[in-house]
Design a protein around this nucleic acid. Structure first.
Length: 880
RNA sequence: GGGCGCGUAGCUCAGUGGGAGAGCGCUCGCUUCACACGCGAGAGGUCGCUGGUUCGAAACCAGCCGCGCCCACCA
């Protein structure tokens, strides 16, 4: 592959655009992401991706979430585990309706005009055309999902799973149908669950309205922010202990504008301190009043319809008006009758639809519900016992608090795209059938059956994701091999909507927890700290970032900026990732282009003699602990880098396993940049140029391990470089992941080389501080053995024991006078150093003079302080 | 109303009991044969405020100020 080789020689910049797509295709072709359904869940590693909406485009949340999963999945795959990362999409009822109904509106029609069947045809056509978009975008990110096992929540098999679950829950008595107070979303013309409601602060006006008491001149004044709902009032309630109203309980008010007799009832729920202490009761349009109404067996009147307009029951003056119009009209009418005693501005929380953004209309409606208490109990216990571990654990309590207060879940939706409720009604004899497959005719009377019009809440099917995707309810090889999965990554916003429900359904239907760990990651905000959102225009497109900086750069950046708390998107971190990829590329060029035996001239030795190269190359030791041909080199610096590499491997592995991605990324950066490139490569360069085999072997071994170590977070650049490595046998994606080898950690050698590095640093700093020209070589004298060779080379010093006048000392080095050194600057520097040392000595003396410190601090801390003091004193003494 | 989190260098964030850190930005100097997406050297911080615990507090405790989020049927 001469061209391949030439690329390495010619390109001084890593160019992700050229290679990412090619490499991804190679991975797919290798079949690495498509594991056989063999082995046990304990042996295997599996993750189910949080399924993105079919309508979706990859956003930063996906990118972060996907990168985290990919990093862990790749690490486990490299460790040789049979690894499945299951991918698929969610049918997302409401989102698809939003897209299609917008189209229809633009065409001047509506879904109701079109009809259910034609609408669904259109929805499927839309899905076929656009549904693969987001899947392809995950590929751009480098996500190593099993693209051959892609699932969709409306797949035939998945629908069977949903129907099975519905029927079982119904048979157990958990699912039921009831007329109940629901959150009606005017925007989507459907009921939504409590979790899809978002409370916002709203400035309203609170009106104080006089309700005359029957057969008297008395009035009861009630307070309300929604006067239009008074048309549906069926009682007035007061607190039973409220002396002011005790006499009125049992009497009646006359409802203004309507004339209805309203019983005055006593109920604990009424707060005597709030408003007037008298509460108008509207069971049809207020959740609180609904409860009171049911407790007191009050009439439930509906004056607001599902279309958001006033119904006939509102009376002919108001029927047909929108709620807002009715509000004004009722207030005007009450004014006319002089019933309004007062009004005040009032700020309070008002429910809005999370989806459509419209104000929720609470009303009574016939819907399907699922009782949750019994399902919740085991799901509470597994989290209490940490069988499902929620990380970080503050979210454990949030989960438990919510689960312990769980309420029935309204699962029906007045939409068409989704799982149609598997219930059939016989109009002739009023029989009801709940079945997994549609029954032919009514078993009782032989009459025609009509299926329920509604579909299930999308989250009802998402709740089954970890096992339904593996083939449940059938006993499939996939299910046996990969369930339960290992972990789930998610942002906190779907902890209740999705995570809790998966745990409940996993335990109930698949007989086990769906995953062992739940990692709750940060939310990435826009650069200015606002929420990233399409509607605000604050979104940052991950694909654009990939286009500009490369997938590895984005991946590194996202991991590096991630946290357990919200963080602002950091362009700097993505650039850091890009720079790191480039650094790795160039460091690799240095190593690879100079590690062939014989010719070392970069650019002139496009050798094709691969056999020869392999002979001298460090062959990967089986098991993936390749360390070069000589795992225990004799030179200190070689042993130093190997020792440091083991630490980097250990740290990075540990951080990844702890879901601490930011520190894992930082460790990769630190090791590669600061230790390998800044020091070791500079130290080893001359030996590399000289064709010294030990140096080349060490470097090739370190490179191999470094590439493998970093591959989980930056898969593309590492794979590309690996393709140039002489030890390469297959793709890095399935290369053994490095394991820290403690036998290579050498504390003595680390201390020795660190000391030499520190000396180099000090000499360089000293030169700059006293203004020595960059190019000039200074003379230095050292007592005893010379420092390591690289100290003089990198700091531009020549050491000898010959004579000469010392003009300054830097550590163990006496700097000898020369024309390059300005004596005045040196004196100034010495004075500066003296000041530094004096303050250090003073600080240490003060600390050691504190009796409490010496008596109570741990001895090693005190000892450490003494050592430092001695060192400062002796240096000060040397300076005179 | 209840709960959670945050306030550290100009910016974005680490650091949870023993001398304040990173990246970016800034200053100075370098066309050093891997990389200017680079190399070397620097400047920059009363760790929100007030009290307390401790020999020792950015860290632990209490209160306050500011910001954010979640849950909640006071109309």
């Amino acid at each position: 592959m001469p061209n391949h080789r030439k690329n390495l020689e010619a390109r001084t910049r890593y160019d992700p655009g050229e290679i990412e797509q090619r490499i991804f295709a190679e991975w797919l072709q290798g079949g690495y992401f498509h594991p056989p359904a063999e082995g046990t869940p304990a042996q295997n590693y599996s993750v189910a991706i949080p399924p993105p909406n079919v309508t979706g485009a990859l956003h930063m949340g996906h990118a972060l979430n996907g990168t985290m999963q990919d990093a862990l999945v790749r690490m486990q795959r490299m460790r040789g585990r049979n690894t499945l990362w299951l991918l698929g999409t969610d049918h997302a009822s409401i989102a698809v309706h939003a897209v299609l109904e917008k189209e229809l509106r633009a065409e001047g029609t509506s879904r109701h005009e079109l009809g259910r069947e034609a609408f669904l045809e259109r929805a499927w056509a839309w899905k076929e055309k656009h549904g693969s978009q987001i899947v392809n975008q995950y590929k751009r990110l480098g996500a190593s999902c099993d693209y051959e096992r892609e699932r969709f929540t409306l797949d035939e098999g998945y629908v069977r799973a949903v129907y099975r679950v519905f029927k079982e829950l119904y048979d157990k008595g958990y699912i039921y149908r009831d007329n109940y107070m629901v959150n009606w979303d005017i925007g989507s013309r459907s009921v939504i669950s409590d979790l899809e409601v978002e409370n916002r602060k709203v400035e309203d006006t609170i009106y104080f309205i006089d309700y005359p008491v029957e057969d008297s001149d008395d009035v009861l004044t009630v307070a309300t922010v929604r006067p239009e709902t008074m048309l549906a009032d069926t009682a007035v309630a007061v607190n039973p202990d409220d002396e002011r109203y005790r006499a009125f309980v049992g009497r009646h008010c006359i409802l203004p504008l309507v004339g209805r007799r309203l019983p005055v009832i006593a109920d604990q729920h009424v707060d005597p301190e709030f408003g007037t202490g008298a509460l108008k009761i509207t069971p049809g349009h207020d959740p609180n009043d609904f409860e009171i109404g049911r407790a007191h067996d009050l009439d439930e009147i509906t004056v607001i319809g599902e279309d958001g307009r006033m119904t006939e029951a509102a009376g002919e003056r108001f029927a047909g008006l929108t709620v807002a119009e009715a509000h004004k009209a009722v207030v005007a009418a009450l004014r006319e009758e002089e019933r309004i005693r007062g009004e005040e501005p009032y700020v309070h929380a008002v429910p809005f639809s999370h989806r459509s953004g419209e104000r929720i209309e609470p009303l009574i409606s016939l819907q399907w519900f699922c009782r949750m208490d019994e399902l919740a109990q085991p799901a509470i216990e597994v989290v209490e016992r940490d069988e499902v571990r929620i990380v970080p654990d503050q979210w454990k309590r949030v989960y438990l608090d919510w689960m312990r207060e769980i309420r029935p879940w309204c699962i029906s939706r007045q939409l068409w795209w989704g799982h149609r409720i598997p219930v059939w009604y016989c109009d002739a004899c009023e029989e009801t059938y709940i079945a997994e497959t549609p029954p032919e005719r009514c078993g009782a009377c032989g009459g025609e059956l009509r299926q329920d019009e509604d579909v299930l809440d999308t989250w009802f099917s998402s709740a089954l994701w970890p096992f339904a995707t593996l083939g449940w309810p059938d006993d499939t090889p996939e299910l046996r091999a990969f369930y339960p999965t290992d972990f789930l990554t998610t942002a906190r916003d779907i902890l209740f909507l999705w995570v809790a429900r998966m745990i409940m359904s996993g335990l109930e239907f698949a007989g086990d927890i769906p995953f062992e760990d739940v990692y709750v990651h940060s939310v990435i905000q826009a650069r200015d700290g606002r929420r990233m959102s399409k509607s605000l225009g604050t979104g940052i497109d991950p694909l654009e970032e990939i286009e500009v900086h490369g997938a590895d750069a984005l991946r590194f950046g996202l991991l590096a900026m991630s946290s357990t708390q919200d963080v602002r998107y950091s362009d700097a971190k993505v650039q850091q990732g890009r720079d790191l990829a480039n650094k790795l590329w160039n460091a690799s060029r240095l190593i690879l282009l100079n590690s062939d035996s014989g010719q070392n001239q970069p650019g002139t030795n496009a050798r094709q003699d691969t056999n020869a190269r392999q002979e001298q190359a460090p062959v990967g030791v089986p098991g993936g602990t390749a360390q070069g041909s000589s795992p225990h080199p004799t030179r200190a610096e070689d042993r130093w880098i190997l020792s440091r590499l083991q630490r980097a491997i250990a740290t990075m592995t540990e951080r990844l396993e702890a879901y601490d991605f930011a520190h894992a990324a930082q460790e990769a950066y630190r090791f590669l940049w600061s230790e390998l490139c800044d020091w070791y490569l500079e130290i080893a360069k001359p030996r590399l140029y000289d064709g010294e085999k030990d140096a080349a072997a060490t470097l090739l071994g370190v490179l191999e391990q470094t590439l493998a170590l970093i591959h989980p977070i930056m898969p593309f650049v590492t794979e590309e470089i690996w393709s140039h490595h002489p030890a390469r046998e297959g793709h890095l994606a399935v290369h053994p992941f490095p394991q820290a080898d403690d036998s290579l950690i050498d504390l003595d050698v680390e201390a020795e080389v660190d000391e030499a590095i520190e000396l180099t640093r000090r000499l360089r700093a000293w030169r700059e501080l006293v203004g020595v020209p960059v190019g000039s070589v200074l003379s230095g004298r050292v007592e005893g053995a010379d420092p390591h060779e690289f100290v003089g080379r990198l700091a531009r010093f020549e050491f000898s024991s010959d004579g000469g006048d010392p003009i300054a000392s830097v550590g163990p080095v006496e700097v000898l006078a020369s024309g390059e050194v300005d004596a005045a600057a040196v004196r100034e520097r010495i004075e500066q150093r003296r000041t530094e040392l004096r303050s250090e000595v003073e600080r240490a003396e003060r600390k050691l003079g504190n009796e409490g410190f010496v008596a109570k601090a741990p001895p090693e801390v005190v000892e450490d302080e003494r050592r430092k003091l001695d060192a400062y004193r002796s240096e000060l003494e040397e300076l005179g």
